Computed example of a mutant assay.
Amino acid sequence: MNLSVSLASGEPIYQQIKEQIKRQILSGELREGELLPSIRHLAADLNISVITTKRAYDELEQEGLVASVAGKGTFVTEKNKEAIREVKLRQLEEQVRSLAAESRMLGLSKQDVIGLFDLFFGEGRH
């Protein structure tokens, strides 16, 4: 597992860790049942507080992406396809919201954007 944190990003460190792990789980880079580094080990590797690392793991557990087993560690959970779909839909909604705002700033109409979407939606399908 490859993680990095930036003190200058403005985003809380626990959030950076959480988002990177979540992205690796959703992409399949981290597989079901895979053991994550211990909280202490990850904190030492990133040179951050154990409390910060624990908060990231706790939030991932609340989202159902990992599960902690006493005495054994934190594991990537078996993927709940509906939960993952919901996470991806929220991410897509944010991207669409951003696209709509940028389109308005450029003076594009809804039809212009729909035309672009139609053009690119079929790409990659045969």
Rank of each mutant, 00 (worst) to 15 (best):
L26A: 12
V87N: 00
S38N: 07
M105S: 15
P37W: 00
S38G: 11
N47W: 00
V96D: 00
I84G: 03
Q111K: 13
E93K: 15
L65C: 09
S98K: 14
Y57S: 03
A100T: 14
L3P: 13
A67S: 12
F117W: 11
A8Y: 07
R31P: 04
R90A: 11
N80C: 10
R125W: 06
L42Y: 02
I21Q: 02
M105I: 11
A100N: 10
L119G: 00
E19W: 00
E19Y: 02
E86L: 08
R31S: 11
L3A: 04
N80I: 10
K110P: 05
Q62S: 13
L26P: 06
Q20S: 10
L36H: 06
L42P: 01
I51R: 15
S6Q: 07
Q20F: 06
A70V: 12
Q111S: 11
F117A: 14
E29R: 14
I51K: 14
I25T: 12
I17D: 02
E102N: 13
E11F: 01
Q95L: 12
T53N: 03
F121T: 12
L99H: 09
Y57W: 07
A67G: 06
K81E: 07
L35M: 06
V50M: 04
S68N: 08
K72I: 01
G10Q: 06
R125H: 11
V69C: 02
E34V: 10
K54N: 08
F75Q: 02
S68C: 05
L35T: 05
A56M: 04
T74K: 01
Q15D: 06
L89C: 07
L30V: 12
S68V: 10
E61N: 12
L35V: 09
A101I: 14
D112K: 05
V50P: 01
G73P: 04
N80T: 12
R23E: 13
A83P: 10
E32T: 15
T52G: 01
A8R: 13
E34D: 08
P12H: 00
